[in-house]
Nucleic acid binder design. Structure first.
Lengths: 328, 328
DNA sequence: TTGTATGCGTTATCAA
DNA sequence: TTGATAACGCATACAA
């Protein structure tokens, strides 16, 4: 059962292969008589013809796909939602999404040269030459970076701001001595660094002590120890920023073991607003990164970039919002 | 900045384009002198040459990728882990993974004809002709289905068993009247149906009453109402199977509002063993589907299938294990 | 309105 | 050991 090609279709329909191509692609500067079109379409149906993506890509110089380059972070609810949303948005615009996670040393050039995407959405920073090469190849680049950059097509996911918002909320509630619950996972090191930096900056600006950092393993007993460290400090830590909501859940488990309640004994604020955050005990106050709107913006950018239209004005920096529940 | 082709490399290296191809692919039945190979490789380096995936795919008749076909379910921690693991396993074997989520009516044939994968891993059932067509096209098919089928290359993710295990554990603890916390999400309908069916079957076999089903929205107050319904039943429901761990968290939140504790007032068991399960209050007893071992098996199957080797003997049905913590 | 012919970048066959 | 050459399936400029 060999592959059905446009030639087979042409033969059955009694037309030339070119005509098949015209019909398939609704080529605008080729008028096709309704009768021929009809015959061709029927033949396509009958034979179950599907154009070869490879041949098309080879001919067109691009696969038409959008390549999403992700750093090697775990795919949790947030990254999942981001991919899901971006995928949906692009699909609506007739674009397919190919997702690739890359390791640190990996050669990005090789990657996009292979995939031949029409556009690249990257969450890892690309070097100067890399960007030039992409431009030269006619591939539109949209970046979604943790550290902001002043480019038209770059929007930043402001991790620094995330940290600041956490502290501001706690300071507003009168806390002066805060702790930081860091994730002991090398994969998220970059995120952690920036969020913690944001926390530090904010502490300095607001005249608070620097955060008291504890590394949290996925273990309630260890978390309990960390919590007790905070409580034993002089002066005592009264509020904690968690790296994310998962860590916050672990901290809550530690507090429970220590017989402590949030926010009375120790206030707690997370990041991500995962679906389970409202169901923590107590419901988790957290920072929402609104990745769905980022995805929407990215999709708009990509769409315009591919079509060569002027880029829509999209916020340089995505909005990050505080979600107040009960834990802080 | 036009694309760097094998011809450019050949020119720089002072050899023919065919030679470049030989060197690149380590063609076994072509001896290349070390000197030539060296020159070619240097030229490749200098020009930053990367072979065109499209051209290669066109020529070879396959893109070499593995196509993962997923139903349109939300990408939570479990599906995320599955993808992640499968991706890693395949990468280890030099295979790339292309993930596609398909809607219900979507034409799968079109999909694989376009991607030209070397193998397809499908979580949606394929029709008889579809499978024949794939075979004809020389594409290896491995299925990971919810409903088992007796094929060599099909392994089932036994959702029925998941439900049974939940009930068996509860029955063992002496519960006779159990409730079922169903997810009110149309996307997971298929999973829900099967898990619930497993619960029903097990109830019948063990001589328990049929489960008392409550639909749980993502809302603690609503969950509280559901919990109180169970408690008001005559005879009273003493244990609940949740559709998954997320629903279990919601039920726990509802119980908390109702002033009830697990397992004393109401035992609770989830499914999935998500990372947060140990940190619920109380820590969640649950069923682990071990998707990582499924992924491993699938990767083995795919590898053998592509290489035309005899398929490794792999369990027809994946193992599902009970993880006992404190909630039941 | 339709058909003919060409090239996209590879790999692989065969002759040198 | 190497090089010329022919597909692979498609889109399009150009001829009819």
């Amino acid at each position: 059962m060999a592959r059905v090609t446009a030639r087979d279709v042409a033969e059955v329909a009694g037309v030339s292969q070119a005509t098949v191509s015209y019909v398939i692609n609704d080529n605008p500067n080729q008028k096709i008589s309704p009768a021929t079109r009809e015959r061709v379409l029927r033949a396509v149906q009958d034979l179950g013809y599907a154009p070869s993506a490879a041949a098309r890509a080879l001919r067109m110089g691009t696969s038409g796909a959008v390549l999403l380059i992700l750093p090697h972070v775990p795919i949790g609810p947030v990254v999942g939602a981001f991919i899901e949303c971006l995928e949906a948005e692009l699909k609506e615009r007739g674009l397919g999404l190919v997702t690739r996670r890359v390791d640190d040393g990996e050669d990005l050039t090789l990657l996009w040269r292979q995939v031949m995407p029409a556009a690249v959405v990257s969450m890892v920073a690309m070097g100067r030459e890399e960007r030039a090469a992409l431009e030269g190849a006619g591939i539109f680049l949209a970046e979604a970076l943790l550290s902001p950059r002043r480019e038209e097509s770059t929007l930043s996911l402001p991790q620094l701001l995330v940290g600041r918002l956490q502290v501001e909320h706690l300071a507003m509630a009168g806390h002066r001595h805060i702790g930081y619950a860091a994730a002991a996972d090398a994969q998220v090191e970059e995120f952690l660094r920036l969020r913690l930096e944001g926390v530090r900056m904010s502490c300095v600006e607001l005249g608070l002590d620097l955060p008291d950092v504890q590394w949290i393993e996925a273990d309630a007993a260890a978390a309990q120890a960390a919590v007790e460290e905070w409580r034993a400090r002089e002066p005592r830590v009264t509020a904690v920023c968690a790296y994310n909501d998962e860590i916050a859940f672990v901290v809550l488990a530690g507090m429970r073991r220590a017989g402590l309640r949030a926010p009375e004994d120790l206030a707690l604020i997370g990041v991500d607003n995962i679906p389970l955050a409202p169901f923590a005990d107590p419901p988790l106050t957290t920072i929402d990164q609104n990745v769905d709107v980022s995805a929407k913006h990215l999709a708009q950018l990509v769409r315009a970039g591919i079509d060569g239209e002027p880029l829509p004005r999209v916020p340089r920096s995505e909005s990050v919002t505080l979600v107040v529940r009960e834990s802080a």
